[in-house]
Design a protein around this nucleic acid. Structure first.
Lengths: 164, 164
DNA sequence: AATAAGTTGTACATAAATGTATTAAATGAC
DNA sequence: GTCATTTAATACATTTATGTACAACTTATT
């Protein structure tokens, strides 16, 4: 039995008690939540041996996905979906570990640039094989066609959220 | 332009740098993360005037979705996806607010039962109209057929995560 | 130039979440 | 019955996240 069945059952009771409750949107939202939690926990467990947590991993991957391996704190916050106050603390930790470097920008001296170091790059390339295999395992149940369809539908969902 | 475009762009760079990186699973995971974040933040904002945060809301809704409005702390933790250590704190807050009641079970005196109070029920019914309208708005972009398809695919995804 | 207005990043206080250990009670072997 | 094992819930210390306020700097206005 799926881990989701109890949730679905509770939702049925909720709808019985409050008939206006929109079952379909609620199911979708709860599914997303369950999936997010699983993915988050699995990734965290994988990263632990590397001395990283999920947010730190995210920041590193954002820099890795950027030309020049460089972003400002506010760009990084935006990219990783973190609050800016959080970025200071998290990048401090990454600096302490020598994975990124903080230098002040010349063009605008309010700004700070955060750049992946060689050590940071090596760290990323050390955990990427594990991450890849985790991602593959996580999505192995979906055929390519289903995966593409899911991507399309999730994008549509997200687009609408942006507008709502 | 979608809020997701920059993420997709970063993923493209990542794949160029590390060709084994599984693009499709990664996209799905990041989409889920973005959607989760949006839904979470929107719901939190909605709940603030009621003096509740998202976890507290979740706990209330789990009790509301249960016959007899009653669960043990460990059942509640499982239902809401919270760690059990968190449940004590959260249910304390809800008790203090008079929304739930804590009594010790007769059958097994290690156990505690948490029950929604009349005040808690009234609270739920006061915010449900807002929640329903938020849920409707959040999913309004999807046709019923798309919504059903998305539900099916997400369930398949989650089923596989449970197994992985 | 002088001043106002807006950004960027960070510090600090507060709140929330997690992990570990502890207490109390039930269960099961003998 | 007694003792070891397991389970439920919580307390406490630690870690992590958030919100608010501020200092440094840039840009726009006059």
């Amino acid at each position: 039995m799926s881990s989701f069945a109890p949730t679905e059952q509770r939702l049925a009771i909720t709808c019985r008690r409050y008939p206006d409750f929109p079952r379909d949107p609620a199911i979708l939202v709860r599914l997303v939540k369950h999936i997010y939690k699983r993915v988050h926990d699995d990734t965290n467990a994988l990263l632990k041996p590397y001395g990283l947590n999920h947010p730190e991993y995210n920041l590193l991957m954002m820099l890795y996905g950027t030309e020049g391996y460089t972003l400002n704190p506010s760009q990084l916050a935006d990219a990783a979906g973190e609050k800016s106050a959080n970025i200071t603390r998290l990048t401090n930790e990454l600096c302490d570990k020598g994975l990124i470097e903080r230098t002040s920008s010349d063009e605008d001296r309010r700004k700070v640039t955060l750049t992946l170091t060689a050590k940071g790059l090596a760290m990323i390339e050390s955990f990427l094989p594990d991450i890849c295999s985790l991602l593959d395992r996580q999505a192995v149940g979906l055929q390519p066609r289903e995966s593409a369809q899911l991507e399309r539908l999730l994008k549509k969902f997200l687009d609408h959220l942006d507008r709502a």
